[in-house]
Amino acid sequence: MTETVGVLAERIAGQVAGWGPARWRSASPVSGTNTRGEVLYELVQHLADLCAELEERPRRTVPRLGNDYALPDQLRVVAADLETAGPDAATAADAVDALREAHRVIFG
């Protein structure tokens, strides 16, 4: 079975949805420097940028809200937007690779 952007995004969002502040602020076990929240935010921004390119509109900065609790929902929204935009094979592969890498970096 081929994993889609939506399936991978939901997997990550579901795994982090119940995290508290300490877990979000802890360093990634792989990067050691970025927090898990920073890694997930960077993924959200990357997916939003891919969607903007597909829709031929300017890139915009995804708002970084006051806490990280919104990150799973932001991930779900940008993943759904990207799938709705109908990515070509290369863009879909880029998004899937980014989701897999973020998962590896967040969870080790």
Rank of each mutant, 00 (worst) to 15 (best):
residue 5 V to T: 08
residue 86 G to T: 07
residue 87 P to H: 10
residue 2 T to S: 09
residue 106 I to L: 05
residue 89 A to E: 10
residue 4 T to V: 10
residue 46 H to R: 15
residue 66 G to H: 10
residue 32 G to N: 12
residue 54 L to K: 11
residue 58 P to C: 06
residue 91 T to K: 00
residue 8 L to Q: 14
residue 7 V to C: 03
residue 35 T to C: 00
residue 76 R to F: 00
residue 35 T to W: 03
residue 107 F to E: 03
residue 17 A to T: 03
residue 75 L to F: 06
residue 51 C to E: 15
residue 88 D to I: 08
residue 86 G to P: 10
residue 88 D to Y: 10
residue 17 A to K: 10
residue 1 M to Y: 11
residue 106 I to R: 00
residue 48 A to L: 13
residue 17 A to M: 07
residue 90 A to T: 11
residue 23 R to L: 09
residue 45 Q to M: 12
residue 5 V to S: 01
residue 58 P to T: 06
residue 6 G to T: 00
residue 9 A to S: 08
residue 104 R to N: 09
residue 76 R to Q: 00
residue 89 A to W: 00
residue 49 D to K: 08
residue 50 L to I: 09
residue 47 L to I: 15
residue 40 L to Q: 02
residue 105 V to S: 06
residue 14 G to W: 01
residue 67 N to G: 08
residue 47 L to W: 02
residue 21 P to Q: 02
residue 57 R to Q: 14
residue 54 L to Q: 13
residue 42 E to D: 15
residue 82 L to I: 11
residue 4 T to C: 09
residue 25 R to G: 13
residue 106 I to A: 04
residue 53 E to V: 15
residue 44 V to Y: 00
residue 28 S to A: 07
residue 72 P to C: 03
residue 43 L to Q: 05
residue 32 G to C: 10
residue 56 E to A: 14
residue 26 S to E: 12
residue 31 S to V: 13
residue 27 A to V: 10
residue 98 A to C: 06
residue 90 A to Q: 09
residue 71 L to F: 04
residue 81 D to V: 00
residue 87 P to E: 09
residue 106 I to P: 03
residue 91 T to I: 11
residue 67 N to V: 08
residue 55 E to L: 15
residue 76 R to N: 01
residue 84 T to C: 09
residue 5 V to G: 02
residue 18 G to A: 02
residue 26 S to L: 01
residue 85 A to C: 12
residue 20 G to E: 13
residue 69 Y to E: 14
residue 104 R to L: 11
residue 91 T to P: 02
residue 54 L to E: 15
residue 51 C to F: 04
residue 95 A to R: 07
residue 1 M to S: 13
residue 7 V to W: 07
residue 93 A to M: 03
residue 69 Y to M: 06
residue 72 P to M: 04
residue 84 T to W: 07
residue 43 L to N: 05
residue 97 D to M: 12
residue 73 D to S: 13
residue 6 G to F: 03
residue 52 A to P: 11
residue 96 V to E: 00
residue 93 A to Y: 03
residue 91 T to Q: 00
residue 13 A to Q: 06
residue 41 Y to D: 07
residue 75 L to M: 12
residue 85 A to E: 14
residue 40 L to H: 01
residue 92 A to S: 15
residue 74 Q to E: 15
residue 37 G to M: 02
residue 63 P to D: 12
residue 34 N to T: 02
residue 63 P to E: 14
residue 19 W to R: 07
residue 103 H to D: 13
residue 71 L to S: 04
residue 11 R to E: 14
residue 62 V to H: 05
residue 40 L to P: 00
residue 19 W to S: 12
residue 9 A to P: 05
residue 9 A to E: 00
residue 19 W to Y: 15
residue 30 V to I: 11
residue 50 L to W: 08
residue 40 L to I: 10
residue 12 I to D: 04
residue 94 D to Q: 14
residue 39 V to H: 09
residue 85 A to V: 14
residue 33 T to W: 12
residue 12 I to K: 02
residue 72 P to I: 04
